[in-house]
Design a protein around this nucleic acid. Structure first.
Lengths: 199, 199
DNA sequence: CGGGTCTGTGGCAGCTACTGCCAGGTGGCA
DNA sequence: TGCCACCTGGCAGTAGCTGCCACAGACCCG
């Protein structure tokens, strides 16, 4: 890794950190990108070189985390059974959240305050799941590959999303891993109502 | 309904229609809100009175449709079994899509072209599902009410979303109801892999 | 039916997110 | 050490979005 790249990586992270701090302090709407740039001691133009929109500043590390979870899939050999893969993804996401709980909570609470930020988060997760579906579909045989892969990924993501939402409601005091596992157990059980099959 | 309200409703719909038409014609990014206003023969300021953002112009009727589906729930008596409720929601959404297939397809294709539009759609669906969870939770007894309601709603929404996506990929030629029912069948079967339970 | 009032409309000014362009400087590399 | 590549940041410009205010049409009551 060259000096140039190191510097850029540092600036990139610095901007995201400073931005998140300012947003928490003064609120998202009341902070201009110019202020973020000034606080990070870079030009406004530079901020936009690293992050395409103001909203994306909130999810700098979040995006990196999702990327990691996906990347991890590729380390598993081709013969790995799909349930194990899904378990690995779930585990990776839970682990990331446990590493930086305050940041996760802060980003989520900012998202709840500001619709466009929530929209950005929803979009981030949406594309992530779509990419995951493509990854998983490659490993599945049989009929309706895309539907099966889709359902598998969506269910896995849902388990985490619900557990996380409950965890966040609680202010992050509960044990996220515990909550995830409880939710997963519910999904495995048949206590969850579903629309009936049309005859 | 007074004359005033009628007029407003008409303008509201006119703006959305004109906007969607212009977006399809010249593309979303290459159409300014000012142009939409001019084509609808209203002031720019008025457009923003009806629709808070440019993106929301794309989903005028979409939002109304989701609202209808939710509203329909309230027509069912309290004793209605939850699976039936979920079935009704699914049905309502499928029906709406079958009524205006071109518009649905157009809106979705615009969303795929422009990230912020997709983000808006994702957000719309996200809040809709959350509201549905609250509605359903009211009707469920027992433990982990919110988790059960959450899983139930998310699974139902997922079934439709996947079927819709496949339908849209196909250019809207396939039968959406058929696709939905196939997806639902898959979900009921145990052909869908899940993450294993941690011991 | 007519006058006062309420309310939707739209123009104007202004802020800020975001972009293309270009000059200057710093790191990479021979 | 010197040339080249590329990252940086300032400037100007576009467009989404908002508060404010005057006007006009709709509503209501005598």
């Amino acid at each position: 890794m060259t000096l140039r790249e190191t510097k850029m990586e540092r600036t990139r992270e610095l901007i995201a950190e400073v931005a998140l701090a300012l947003f928490r302090e003064r609120g998202y709407a009341d902070t201009t990108v110019e202020q973020v740039a000034a606080a990070a001691e870079v030009g406004t133009r530079t901020v936009y070189r690293y992050y395409p929109t103001k909203e994306s500043l909130v999810f700098g590390f979040y995006a990196k985390m999702l990327d990691t979870a996906r990347r991890e899939l590729r380390t598993h050999p081709d013969e790995t059974p799909v349930p194990e893969l899904l378990g690995a993804v779930l585990d990776s996401v839970v682990r990331s959240h446990q590493e930086k709980p305050e940041e996760m909570l802060a980003a989520f609470s900012l998202a709840q305050e500001t619709p466009t930020v929530m929209a950005h988060l929803a979009h981030l997760l949406y594309t992530w799941r779509q990419d995951l579906v493509a990854d998983i579909a490659d490993r599945i045989g049989g009929r309706s590959v895309d539907l099966v892969a889709g359902l598998a990924v969506e269910q896995t993501a849902t388990v985490f999303t619900l557990a996380f939402r409950k965890w966040a409601e609680d202010g992050g005091r509960a044990d996220l891993r515990q909550l995830t596992s409880t939710t997963l157990k519910l999904l495995h059980s048949d206590a969850v109502p579903l629309p009936p099959l049309p005859h």
